[in-house]
Design a protein around this nucleic acid. Sequence first.
DNA 1: CTGAAAGCGCTTACAG
DNA 2: CTGAAAGCGCTTACAG
Lengths: 326, 326
Amino acid sequence: MARLAGVSTTTVSRVVNGRYGVSASTIAQVRSAIERLGYESSLVASSLRRRKTDVLGLVTHSFQSYTAEVLKGVMDALRQSGLDLIIYADSDLYGTYAEGWEQRHLSRLAGTLTDGCIVVTPSGEIRSSTPVVAIDPATDSTVPSVTAANFEGATAVVEHLIELGHRRIGFIAGRSELVASRSREEGYLQALARAGIPADPALIAKGDFHPGSAAPLARALLERPDRPTAIFAANDDMALTTLEVAKDLGLSVPGDLSVAGFDDIPEAALAEPALTTVDQSVYRLGYEAARMLKALVRGEWDGPHQIVLPARLVVRRSTAPPRAAM
Amino acid sequence: MARLAGVSTTTVSRVVNGRYGVSASTIAQVRSAIERLGYESSLVASSLRRRKTDVLGLVTHSFQSYTAEVLKGVMDALRQSGLDLIIYADSDLYGTYAEGWEQRHLSRLAGTLTDGCIVVTPSGEIRSSTPVVAIDPATDSTVPSVTAANFEGATAVVEHLIELGHRRIGFIAGRSELVASRSREEGYLQALARAGIPADPALIAKGDFHPGSAAPLARALLERPDRPTAIFAANDDMALTTLEVAKDLGLSVPGDLSVAGFDDIPEAALAEPALTTVDQSVYRLGYEAARMLKALVRGEWDGPHQIVLPARLVVRRSTAPPRAAM
DNA sequence: CTGAAAGCGCTTACAG
DNA sequence: CTGAAAGCGCTTACAG
């Protein structure tokens, strides 16, 4: 240890943490030893002793484009704040994400490592001894959370399709334990209902937000004799997959099929054709969650505990009137 | 603690860790208490006591598309391995990334939290008490590392431009402390030299890989009276920025200007026009680094300590013969 | 101004 | 089969 170089560990600790009451010469001595050994105090040990680390945690179970956007927002909100970020991701040892991953990771970190945590799309209720903010929480969750106006966004995109003249509109849903997913489905149903179009259960497919889950579903929808003239996927990853499936099947978009997504990830604007979607600003979801957690940790938060960010319809080239109606 | 529910902490620990020599009835008792309290052993405390955590670390100083791809590769390599991942990112408290961030983060984690670490684009030499693998290391680094064939890739892309007929080819460099960056510049110079084209220092701009850094540089290059007919940016993020700057200036790509990048991030293929670039498979960089670290940690690695992955020229629509030569 | 001691939450020999 | 004690690397009262 650095203590061999200088004197007691107490003193080293004082120097490292800039406490008062150490003679200038001792400080210099310790500093040089630290320099020489490249010593850095262990995050683990100090976090165990103090009850505070100035480190925030984020737990997630995958790294998709969505996650990357969330992270950018989180990091920007934390910039220069003096709070670092630790992201915990597991190796999925037991396959298909054993239920309760978020709770397990959270408990391991919240022990003493982090002062608070952001949980990305948790699938159930959560408890923790330190503050938690959920991004796109589970349906029955009561923890502080940040979500987009999923219901309104979905309604808007489906109304857009209806206005174009579509009547048979397929829907590829996301993970049903998330409010985000449920709200989008309700928005879809609501828009149909308002337009007096009966919902056809055969046109509703159950995906899980991962691009891979959408391929067989989109294919099944599109190979039906009475295939839909438009498909609304509950997120962009699945919508982009639908675009590819349509291409494989020789269907032109938006000529033969209109496709719309949700999220507005960067790839959406760059797709061919560019994807009509709902901008829920995933970046802002991350940004606001981090801002809220930061204040919560400092005991300074006085806003609402459930934040809903506006969602905005973004019309691009992947949607157009159906052939029949042209 | 859970111990209030059952009996001694020793016994609880034995149950949690599945050690032998606990009566079935005690196990049941402790299990139920654990269940009731939602107890999870603290990662911090147990890591301090054992010297092993089955957690790997990754330190980075930003989240760009590049980082997201690296992470996907790392997670795939770790899938089902029983090794979790902790990513540490700092809030850049002192601005513009105080030199030595990688060493500081590493020391804090390597204390006892992680069994080994991946460091993304470190800017200097690194030392650690646990195994380390660098992705795109600093120029003078000797730690185990994974890099792409940067020199060959850059040579190939510049030769491609020369074959198209370009003679004035601009270059936007990356962070000069990284081998990746230096090698790409050398590849650029080499290709020019081989073709007997004198390098013009005025056409070489110093970027830092971030998209923002490239905007003023690209603009300066393109506003020169003797502007280049092609620009090769040291990574895709900067090449995509160059595409936008060209658009702003009313220059058509590839009509008025050819643009090429390096990396082949997902956005490259989706850009308008699609970007000619070098596929260095950032995903594989992450994948191989994780595979190597995993073996190193287990003491099973017997391959070379410096891995170079092949790079491949990907010609898309952003490069074409210059107008004059058409 | 400096150090010895206690304790953060665990795990691991060591006794019983 | 079970528990008291020591110790992982720190920090923080408490003495000197």
